[in-house]
C-alpha cells in the first residue's frame, strides 16, 4: 500500500516536472523566435504593390539592433528567398530610439538596414548614463559605434564615440 502511494506521488511529481519543462521550453523558443515586431494602436497598412508597411498611432518597432517609438512609421521591404525583409524604416513625430544604454530622440528618423545607420533630424538629443547632447541632426553609425551630431546652423558640433572607452 505504501509502495503504491509512493509510486503514485513519484509519478505525479515526474509529470509536474515534465510539464514545467515543456512550458519553459515553449516560452524560451517563442522568445527566441520573435526577433522583431511592429505594434500600433491606430492602423497598419500593408501595401504589397509598393512593398511597404505604414503604421499609425503609438508605433513600437523592434529589430535585432534597437527598439523605437514614434507616432507613425513607414517600413519598406524587399523579398529575399521567399521572405520579406525590412530595408528602410522611417519614423515620424516623437521619435524615441533605445539602443543599448543610449536614448536618441528626434522628430524624424530613417534607419537603413544595409549600412546600419540611423539618421535623426529635428530637435535631436542623445542621452546616455553620463551625458546629454542636443542638436539638429544625428547620424548614428551602429556598426562602427560612431555618433555625429550637427547643430541647426552652419557651426556644427561633431561628437564621436568609439567603443566603451568613451564613457566620460
Amino acid at each position: 500500500m505504501k509502495v503504491e502511494l509512493f509510486l503514485k506521488v513519484k509519478l505525479n511529481l515526474l509529470l509536474i516536472n515534465k510539464s514545467l519543462y515543456i512550458v519553459l521550453i515553449l516560452f524560451f523558443f517563442s522568445a527566441a523566435y520573435s526577433e522583431g515586431y511592429v505594434k500600433a494602436s491606430g492602423s497598419l497598412i500593408w501595401d504589397s504593390e509598393n512593398k511597404n508597411y505604414t503604421a499609425n498611432g503609438d508605433v513600437e518597432f523592434k529589430n535585432e539592433k534597437f527598439i523605437a517609438y514614434s507616432d507613425k512609421m513607414i517600413a519598406e521591404y524587399i523579398e529575399e528567398n521567399n521572405e520579406e525583409v525590412f530595408t528602410i524604416v522611417e519614423l515620424f513625430q516623437n521619435v524615441i530610439i533605445y539602443f543599448e544604454d543610449e536614448v536618441f530622440k528626434g522628430n524624424h528618423a530613417v534607419y537603413k538596414r544595409n549600412d546600419n545607420i540611423i539618421v535623426l533630424t529635428g530637435d535631436v538629443s542623445i542621452e546616455s548614463p553620463t551625458r546629454l547632447l542636443t542638436g539638429y541632426e544625428l547620424i548614428a553609425d551602429i556598426d562602427n559605434n560612431k555618433r555625429i551630431l550637427n547643430s541647426a546652423n552652419e557651426e556644427s558640433l561633431v561628437e564621436v564615440l568609439i567603443g566603451n572607452d568613451a564613457n566620460n
Binding site: A32, Y33, S34, E35, G36, Y37, V38, K39, A40, S41, G42, S43, L44, I45, W46, D47, S48, E49, Y53, A55, N63, E83, F86
Partner: peptide, 17 residues
Amino acid sequence: YEGRIIFEGEIEFVINK
C-alpha cells in the same frame, strides 16, 4: 485590386527571425 490591406485597432505584427 490595389494590393493593400488596412488593419485596424490594436495591431501586433511579430516578424519572423
